[in-house]
Design a protein around this nucleic acid. Structure first.
Lengths: 199, 199
DNA sequence: TTGCTCCTCACGTCACGTGAGGTGGC
DNA sequence: TTGCTCCTCACGTCACGTGAGGTGGC
């Protein structure tokens, strides 16, 4: 990808960056091709992203981008003269998916398996079946997690509303005998209220 | 809590455990008081739970229960003659809440702050306001996470349905030019399909 | 005596965070 | 020359996992 004769300063990250693409400290996600720029002229070299661009555009960190490269999840298209990594756009999208899957609870091992699944299958049939199988198992886990989060959200919300009247409390039952207080009228306190407030 | 004169074998965990409470390998969650057993006679000693009971009843591990005790999140009511921890029922409920909050993404530090918040406040007003503030911030985080998980679930589900037709694929475009395939008819592929399948 | 459950170190792991010291083009 | 961004070690952290070797009542 790097012409051997070209001097390093040809490859300055700023020079490579089309106007409107990531400027320092700007977190706006840039659109794909500039109008008037042929998208298939120099497809891999047209708009490469630095490690910092990758981090800023995804809300992650330099360390995370480098760590994912070290673990084989990301691959820079090339490096410039100063040794700086330069990533193509598809690696940005890959990074965004990895970060979302991480937040959904998948380990990097599971994510790597997903990313490598298709290339590890001899036929489209095998790849389709295996990917479907893995994704459906993950879909179940995600649904369980959504259900837990929704239950917990409702529990904490009802705890907040239950202790609302405690702002005007002058009772000596605070803090040790709040479970005997008439202000907390609910017949059965939600678990979070019992654990965080009753005692 | 431990009468100094009493010999240790008075405190056997089996002897303390009312019938119907956690038997080995049984994951059913027992009901609170046995009918016919006065619930306030020996309240702290009536039904104490071993570390293993705590782990089994919550689906966690011995190590986790011990770690949470070491970190000051749980406290055993006492220990028996053999040094085995014995927890009261409110610690089981506390452990369940801790585990749910962990799965929701809170750190043990944040959870400890929540658990200690009330006792660290001089008045009910202060405690109510601070707990409300902390919980409402967490509610926002949880809602964001729910939204992310739902989006990701839908994205993966549509990816699964998109590659369904690939089971009968014999095209030479597999595996490197699937993005040019007519079978993947959607005008705009979802991100997961682009990252995991197109290439 | 044999299982079973529990105990205490203590080292390992996963996914990064956080400096320390150095480089390279405006 | 001065900032700014990026680089490579390398040690730290968080939340446990995983044996190793030992105890105690059926």
């Amino acid at each position: 990808l790097t012409p051997p004769e070209a001097p390093p300063y040809i490859y300055l990250p700023i020079a490579r960056r089309p106007q409107g693409l990531p400027s320092r400290g700007n977190i706006t996600v840039p659109e794909q091709p500039e109008p008037g720029v042929a998208p298939d002229a120099e497809p891999a070299c047209a708009d490469l992203l630095s490690t910092g661009d990758m981090a800023r555009l995804t809300g992650s960190t330099l360390r995370t981008v480098r760590f994912y490269e070290q673990e084989g999840l990301l691959e820079p298209a090339t490096r410039n003269g100063g040794g700086h990594r330069l990533f193509s756009r598809d690696q940005l999208e890959k990074l965004q998916l990895i970060l979302d899957l991480r937040e959904a609870g998948l380990s990097l091992h599971e994510i790597r398996d997903l990313l490598e699944l298709k290339q590890g299958c001899p036929t489209a049939e095998a790849a389709s079946e295996r990917l479907t199988c893995v994704l459906e198992r993950q879909l179940e886990c995600m649904q369980h997690k959504i259900n837990l989060l929704r239950r917990l959200r409702d529990e904490l919300a009802s705890t907040v509303s239950a202790i609302n009247d405690c702002r005007s409390c002058n009772d000596a039952k605070f803090p040790h005998r709040c479970d005997e207080c008439d202000v907390l009228q609910q017949p059965e306190h939600p678990r979070a209220l019992r654990v965080l407030w009753d005692t």
